[in-house]
C-alpha cells in the first residue's frame, strides 16, 4: 500500500522508525526537540524518544558535530541536524578531517556510523548565506557518502539506508521540497546507496538531475515530448557512491547527455558527472555533454535575480533541443 506524504513527513517517519528499531540511534542539533527545526521536519520525535535521544544544542555547530563524531566512534549512531547546508563550512574539520578519516587512520578499528542531515536549494528568498547548495564540497572528500533525495520516497529510503551504514553519510534535502508530496509505501523499505533510478525512458537524450533538479528534468522531458524528442530522465540518488553503470548505459543508448544540479556549475557535481561520461562513453557521444548548474554567483536576495541563477525546465529543454538537432551549444 502506498499513500502520499510530504518529504518532511517521510524524513520524520524514517528517523522515528530507525530510532524504534535501534536504541543507539540519536538525534542532535539546533532546535531538533520541541521546535522540531524551522522546517517542522522533526515534530513529535522528542515526545516519543525523550531528551536523552533527541538532543537540543546551543548554536554551536562545530561543538555538536564534534560530539556526534565522538559518539559515533563509541557505539552510538547519531543523526546530526545541520539547520542550513550553508553551515557546512562550520563543521568541515569535524566532518572531513575526523569523521571521514577515522576508519582509515585507525586501521579499521573505529567506525563512524554518523548521518549528517542538511539541506540545499535557492529561490526561498533567504539570501546568499542560507541558500547555497554545497554538496560538491562533501562529494570531494574520500570517506564520505552523499545522498541527494529527489522526492519523499527517496528521502525516506535513503535516510534509513544512511542510518544503517557504518560510514559517515551526508544527506542534502531540498529545503523547498519539504511540503512536496509523493507516493511512499506504508510498509518498511530501504533504498540502496549507489543505485540510480531511470524515471522516464527516452532514446534521444539523457537528462541527469539530482535532488529537485530531477523534477526540472522531468518537466523538461514533458516539454521535449511535445517537440517529438524522447528524453530519458535519470536520478543518481546518491553521488557517492555514484551509479555509473546506469548513467553510462543510458548515455550509450541516447548518445547525448545533460547533467543538471543546483550546486554552482564551476568545478561542481555537473562537471564530475559530465567528465565521467566523456571519459567512459566517449565513442558513444554524438554531442558534447552539457553541464547545467547554478550560476557562479552568490545567490542574490532579489527574487527576480535569484530565480535566474537556478536551472529551469525551459532551459534544459532548449539545450536538449539544440544537441538533438545537431546545433552546437558552443561554437566549434
Amino acid at each position: 500500500m502506498t499513500r502520499e506524504i510530504t518529504l518532511s513527513q517521510a524524513v520524520n517517519e524514517a528517523i522515528a522508525e530507525e530510532m524504534r528499531r535501534d536504541e543507539t540511534v540519536l538525534l542532535i542539533g539546533e532546535d531538533v526537540a520541541e521546535a522540531g527545526t524551522p522546517f517542522k521536519v522533526l515534530s513529535g520525535l522528542v515526545e516519543e524518544f525523550g531528551t536523552e535521544r533527541v538532543i537540543d544544542t546551543p548554536i554551536a555547530e562545530p561543538g555538536f558535530m564534534g560530539i556526534a563524531v565522538g559518539a559515533a566512534m563509541t557505539g552510538s549512531r547519531p543523526i546530526v541536524d545541520l539547520m542550513f547546508g550553508d553551515f557546512l563550512y562550520l563543521v568541515m574539520d569535524q566532518l572531513c578531517n575526523q569523521a571521514a578519516k577515522t576508519h582509515y587512520m585507525s586501521g579499521g578499528k573505529l567506525n563512524v556510523p554518523l548521518v549528517l542531515r542538511t539541506n540545499l536549494g535557492a529561490t526561498r528568498r533567504s539570501a546568499a548565506q542560507h541558500s547555497q547548495s554545497l554538496h560538491a564540497l562533501v562529494a570531494h572528500i574520500p570517506g564520505l557518502k552523499l545522498a541527494m533525495p529527489s522526492s519523499a520516497y527517496e528521502a525516506k529510503g535513503l535516510l534509513k539506508a544512511a542510518v544503517r551504514d557504518d560510514n559517515p553519510v551526508v544527506i542534502f534535502e531540498d529545503k523547498l521540497m519539504y511540503q512536496d508530496k509523493a507516493p511512499v509505501p506504508e510498509e518498511e523499505y530501504v533504498l540502496a546507496l549507489g543505485e540510480a533510478a531511470i524515471l522516464r525512458e527516452g532514446s534521444e537524450v539523457t537528462l541527469i538531475g539530482t535532488s529537485s533538479m530531477r523534477q526540472v528534468c522531468e518537466r523538461a522531458a514533458e516539454i521535449l515530448e511535445g517537440d517529438g524528442i524522447g528524453a530519458e530522465v535519470v536520478d543518481p540518488r546518491t553521488l557517492v557512491p555514484l551509479d555509473e553503470r546506469t548513467i553510462l548505459g543510458s548515455v550509450r543508448k541516447t548518445s547525448r547527455a545533460i547533467v543538471v544540479d543546483e550546486g554552482h556549475q564551476n568545478f561542481g557535481v555537473t562537471a564530475e558527472i559530465a567528465a565521467r561520461i566523456s571519459e567512459k562513453a566517449f565513442y558513444h557521444l554524438d554531442a558534447p555533454v552539457i553541464r547545467m548548474g547554478a550560476m557562479d554567483v552568490p545567490v542574490p536576495f532579489s527574487p527576480a535575480l535569484e530565480d535566474l541563477t537556478v536551472p529551469t525546465a525551459e532551459g534544459v529543454a532548449a539545450n536538449a533541443r539544440a544537441i538533438v538537432r545537431g546545433v552546437p551549444v558552443h561554437a566549434p
Binding site: 548518445s255 565513442y283 558513444h284 557521444l285 554524438d286 538537432r325 545537431g326 546545433v327 561554437a331 566549434p332
Partner: peptide, 26 residues
Amino acid sequence: RQETPALAERAMPEPVAAGRVLASPK
C-alpha cells in the same frame, strides 16, 4: 518547428576547409 532545425543546420559555422573534419565521437 519545421523551420528552425533546417535554418540552424545550414547556418552551422564553417570550419577551415582542410585538415581534420569536425565530427562527434560517435
